[in-house]
């Protein structure tokens, strides 16, 4: 369980951005979370509450935008969503492919704040 470390890194990154913006209250942090990021959504939300306690982010929400895994199918020559994270193959023609295009994201997309 490393979601607490991740939550602390999110707060650190958000605090830097707030400083760049010259301060202001943050209502929400928007996060892109890929299915292959290795981070569990529920555990992260729980950890975020713990980590933000007693900080300027205490009242803020962590809004998570889950990013499904998208692979490149060499047969169809197209990007395809995986139908299951247990099966890395094209959802249309079934060709196995290790070529991950999206789904590893662990990224602060934006801050909802007063500026």
């Amino acid at each position: 369980m490393h979601e607490l470390s991740i939550a602390l890194s999110i707060l650190e990154g958000a605090a830097e951005e707030v400083e760049r913006q010259g301060g202001g209250r943050v209502y929400a942090i928007h996060l892109k979370l890929g299915s292959l990021s290795g981070v569990a959504k529920d555990a992260l939300i729980f950890s975020y509450k713990l980590a933000s306690e007693g900080t300027p982010f205490e009242e803020s929400r962590l809004v998570i935008d889950e990013v499904p895994v998208v692979v490149f199918c060499p047969e169809c020559r197209a990007e395809r969503r995986l139908s299951s994270i247990q099966q890395f193959c094209c959802a249309v023609c079934g060709t196995p492919t290790p070529d991950v295009v999206r789904g590893r994201e662990l990224e602060i997309a934006g801050l909802e704040m007063d500026v």
Partner: peptide
């Protein structure tokens, strides 16, 4: 009061690592 607005950040959480 001003409506909060979305500031685009697009920064990797584990950027330092």
């Amino acid at each position: 009061t001003a409506q909060p607005r979305i500031v685009e950040v697009r920064q990797k959480v584990l950027r330092r690592n």
